Simulated assay, not measured.
Amino acid sequence: MILTALDIDPTQFEQRTGWSIKPQGACKGEQCVPLPANARNANGSLNGAVVAEALGMPLIKDEKHQLWALGPESLTGRALTTAQAPHLVLPDLEGKLFELASLRGKKVLLTTWASWCGCRTDGPIWAEVRERLYPKGLEIVTVAMDTAGADAVREWIELANPRHPALIDQAHIMGELFGVVNVPNGIWINEAGVIVRPAEPSWPGRTPVTEMELDDIEKWESVKQLTPAHVQILREVKKMRFETELYLQMLEDWAEHGANSQYVLSEQEVIDRSQPRPPAVAQAAARYELGQHLHLAGHHDDAIPHWREAHRLQPDNWTYKRQAWSFEDPTVQDPKGVYDGSMLGDLLEVGAINYYPKIIP
Rank of each mutant, 00 (worst) to 15 (best):
A85T: 08
T11E: 15
K136H: 13
F98G: 03
R241Q: 13
G77D: 05
N43W: 04
E139Y: 12
V196F: 03
D329K: 02
D329G: 04
V89Y: 00
N354W: 03
K106V: 04
L80K: 01
H230D: 11
N317Y: 00
R206E: 00
V194W: 09
E269H: 12
V143G: 02
V270E: 03
V181Y: 07
A39C: 08
D253A: 08
Y355I: 11
L100T: 05
G71M: 05
I157R: 00
K28V: 03
P315N: 01
I217K: 05
T11W: 10
S326P: 05
G29M: 10
W19M: 00
G179T: 02
E243D: 14
K22T: 12
Y134L: 09
W156Q: 04
A79H: 02
W116T: 04
P23N: 09
I271H: 09
E309G: 05
Q268E: 14
Y339K: 00
R322S: 11
L226S: 01
G149Y: 04
T11D: 13
P135G: 06
L67P: 05
L294V: 06
Q66D: 15
R206H: 06
E128Q: 14
R322N: 09
D301C: 12
D316G: 00
T81E: 13
I173H: 01
G137E: 13
E243T: 02
P184C: 04
I2G: 07
V51R: 01
V231K: 12
G105N: 07
L177F: 01
E30R: 10
T207R: 04
A171T: 05
G48K: 00
K96V: 08
M250K: 08
L248F: 08
I353L: 07
E131Q: 13
L133F: 11
T82V: 13
D146L: 03
V181S: 12
R132F: 04
P357M: 12
H230T: 12
D301L: 15
I173Y: 01
T207M: 10
A127P: 03
E63Y: 10
Y356F: 15
